[in-house]
Design a protein around this nucleic acid. Structure first.
Lengths: 353, 353
DNA sequence: CGCGCCTTTGACAACGTTGTCCAGGCTCTA
DNA sequence: TAGAGCCTGGACAACGTTGTCAAAGGCGCG
C-alpha cells in the first residue's frame, strides 16, 4: 500500500504529518488520480481549465481518500485566513451572547469564521488573547476592552489587522469604536425617575475604571445636577458587581433618614441583585436599570430599563471591520448607538416616605 | 532601507506577504540581530541553548520590528493547531452561553483557543461549519448536533480529529456523547405535577426530530402512563418554539371542557412564552419548565423548573475531548448528567376547575 | 600543548498549498 | 499542410516555521 506508507520510512525525518493520522494531501490525490498536483488544486478550488473527465477522476480520488484541504497551508500561501477574532468579557453573560452572534452572522456573510475568547475583565488576559489571535493571523479583531491601554496592538494594526472596539473605547490608540450612548441613556433614565417626583436617587454601578460604568455615572450626576439636586456620598456605590457587595450597598442606601426613594442600576448584573433586595422590602422603591433583562416585563412590577441593542453593537462593529478589510476604509470613527427607555412599572413608582 | 524593501522587487513573484503589510518574519529578525534563523526560533520558543547575550540581541530585534510568530506556518510544521471548534445551535441562546464559556475555560487550561459557530438548527449548516473547522485543522470538535446523520465526520475522526457531541447524541456514528438526563428530568417534572394532584397536563415542546425534545416528550408520556392517565391529543404541541405558535397551542389546550390544569414546557424558549400566556389568564395554572431561567425565582409565582447544568455539560465534554487528545482514550462513551428539580411555586399550584 | 567533549549556532529540508510559467496537443485558418 | 493560437496539465518555487544534523568554538584534562 504505497499511499499509507508514503511517510512511513524516510529516515532522519520526523514526520509531523503523523499527528493527523496520515491525512491525505493533494499530492496523494494527484497520485491516485494520475494527474499533477496543480490540477488537484484547480479542482478543489473550482478554478477553470480542467476537462470534465479529469475533474471527475480527481473528485473520485478525493472521495476515496477522504481528502480535505489543509487551510493552514492555504493561509500561509494566500495571506488571508478568512477568520476574525472576538475578545469579549464573558461569553456566559446574556449581554454578550446576542452581540457575539451578530458578529458571527456578519462574519459568515463574508465567508469568515469567528474565534472568540473571554477576557474575564482582566487586561492581561485581554492582551494575551488578542495577541494570540494576531499570531493566528486573524484578518481582523473585534475587541470589548478590559484594559485601558491598547498600544500593544499598534504593530498589529500597522501590519494590517483590522480592528474595531465595541462597547468601550480603545485606550491610547486611535481606532474605530462602536458604543452605546451610555451617558445619555443613564441621564435619561435618571431624569425619568426625577420626572416621577424622585429626588433622593441612588446609583449602583460597576467600577469607574470601566468606561461604560464611568459614563453612566456621569449621566447620573448630570441628571441630578440638571434637577438641581445635590448627591449624597452614601447614594453611590461604585464597587463592582459582586452580588454580596451590591446587596449591602443597596440595603445601606435604602435605610436611615436619608434613604433613597429610587435606585438607578448601572448594568444587568447589578439590576438583578437589586431586584432581589427590593423584593424583600415592604415599601415600594422605584428602579430603573441599564441593560434590558429577559422576563423583565413579567416581574411585579415590570422592570423599567434603559435598553441597549447588543446585536446592533456587534453588527455595526463587524460591518465596520469588514469595510476596513475591503479597503473602503475611512479614518477611525466613534459611532454611538442610541439607547431606549422601556417603561414597565418599576421606574414609574412615585416616591414613598 | 533594505528591510522593508525585502519583498519589494523580485520580478515574477506575486508576494502574498504584502497582504500582511510586509509583516516581519523570523528571517528579518535574524538579519537584524545578526544571527541565524534557527536561533531566532529558539528564542521565540524558549528553547535552551542560547547565550543570554544572543538572546538579548534577538529580543531587541523582535521588539524593534514588532515581530509576531506566524502560527499558521507553525501549525503547518507541527501538526497541531492548539484550537478546538465548537458547533452550537445559537450563541445568543442563554443556555449556550455558559456551555460555551465552560468549553472555553477547559480549552484555555490546555492552551487552546476556541473557534465557534452557530448552526441555527440547520443540519446543512452544521455540516458546513464542522467541515470548515476540520479544514482549519482544529485538534478537536465539540458539536451540539442539529442533524441526525454524522457519517460525514468519519474521515475526519479517522484522521485524528477528537470529537465529542453534547446535549444531543451523534447520528449513525459511534462517538462520545455528553447529555442531560432529558427523559428522567421530564418524567420527574411531570410526576411532580401529578403528585400535586394534576391529571390533565399539557406538554409543549420542540419538534421531536430534535433528540432532546423527543426524550422529554418520552419522559412526559412515561410519567403520565405511570400515573395511569391517558393523554389527549390536544394536550401535546410539538411544533417548535416559534412564540406565536406556542402561544396558540397554549391557549388552545387551556380552553374548552377538556382544558389542562397544568403545563410542562420542553425548553426555556417555550417556557418564557407560556409564562406570558399564563400571566394573562385569570385562573391559576401550574407550570413546570425544562431549563432554568434567570429571574425565575422573582416571578409571581416563582417558576418551578427542571434545571440542567449547561456549564457542566460543556466542561465534561471538553475534558473528555482533551482526554481523547492526550491519548488516554477509551471507547466512545455516553455520559448522562442528572437534572435537578427546583421548586419555586408554579409547579406546586393545585389543580383548579 | 593537543585531544576530545560539550555547548552554541546555523544551513537545510520539509510541512501542504497556490501562483507563475512553460510544454505539449489540439483546432482553426490561410 | 503548415503555422498561429488556444486549452489543458504539470514542474517548480515560495509562503514562515521547526526538526535534524553538522560545524565551530570553548574548555578541561592528560
Amino acid at each position: 500500500m504505497p499511499e499509507t506508507a508514503r511517510r512511513a520510512d524516510r529516515p532522519g525525518d520526523h514526520r509531523p504529518g503523523n499527528r493527523y493520522g496520515n491525512r491525505p494531501t493533494m499530492k496523494d490525490v494527484a497520485a491516485r488520480a494520475g494527474v499533477g498536483l496543480k490540477t488537484v488544486s484547480r479542482v478543489v478550488n473550482g478554478e477553470p481549465g480542467v476537462t470534465p473527465d479529469t475533474e471527475r477522476r480527481v473528485q473520485e480520488a478525493i472521495e476515496a481518500l477522504g481528502f480535505r484541504r489543509n487551510d493552514s497551508a492555504r493561509v500561509l500561501r494566500k495571506g488571508r485566513t478568512a477568520s476574525i477574532g472576538l475578545v469579549l468579557e464573558d461569553l456566559a453573560d446574556p449581554f454578550y451572547g446576542p452581540l457575539s452572534r451578530a458578529v458571527e452572522e456578519v462574519a459568515r456573510a463574508h465567508g469568515a469564521l469567528l474565534i472568540n475568547g473571554s477576557s474575564a475583565e482582566d487586561p492581561d488576559r485581554e492582551q494575551e488573547l488578542a495577541l494570540a489571535l494576531c499570531a493566528r493571523r486573524v484578518d481582523g479583531l473585534v475587541i470589548i476592552p478590559a484594559g485601558d491601554d491598547h498600544r500593544y496592538l499598534e504593530p498589529e494594526i500597522r501590519a494590517g489587522v483590522a480592528t474595531v472596539f465595541v462597547d468601550r473605547p480603545a485606550g491610547r490608540i486611535d481606532a474605530d469604536v462602536v458604543l452605546s450612548d451610555n451617558f445619555g441613556g443613564a441621564r435619561d433614565g435618571v431624569a425619568h425617575l426625577i420626572a416621577h417626583g424622585h429626588r433622593r436617587i441612588g446609583f449602583i454601578g460597576d467600577m469607574p475604571r470601566i468606561h461604560t460604568a464611568a459614563e453612566r455615572l456621569r449621566g447620573y450626576r448630570a441628571a441630578m445636577e440638571d434637577a438641581g439636586t445635590a448627591v449624597a456620598d452614601g447614594w453611590m456605590s461604585l464597587g463592582g458587581t459582586d452580588p454580596e457587595r451590591v446587596r449591602r450597598a443597596a440595603e445601606e442606601m435604602l435605610s436611615g433618614p436619608d434613604a433613597v426613594t429610587a435606585v438607578f442600576t448601572g448594568n444587568n448584573r447589578v439590576t438583578v441583585t437589586v431586584i432581589r433586595v427590593l423584593a424583600a422590602l415592604s415599601r415600594p422603591v422605584a428602579l430603573v436599570g441599564f441593560d434590558d433583562l429577559e422576563l423583565a416585563d413579567l416581574l411585579q412590577p415590570g422592570v423599567t430599563v434603559v435598553a441597549q441593542d447588543a446585536a446592533a453593537l456587534g453588527r455595526t462593529a463587524a460591518e465596520r471591520l469588514f469595510r476596513q478589510l475591503d479597503g473602503t476604509l475611512l479614518a477611525p470613527e466613534r459611532i454611538e448607538l442610541p439607547t431606549r427607555l422601556v417603561e414597565r412599572g418599576s421606574g414609574e413608582i412615585p416616591p414613598s416616605g
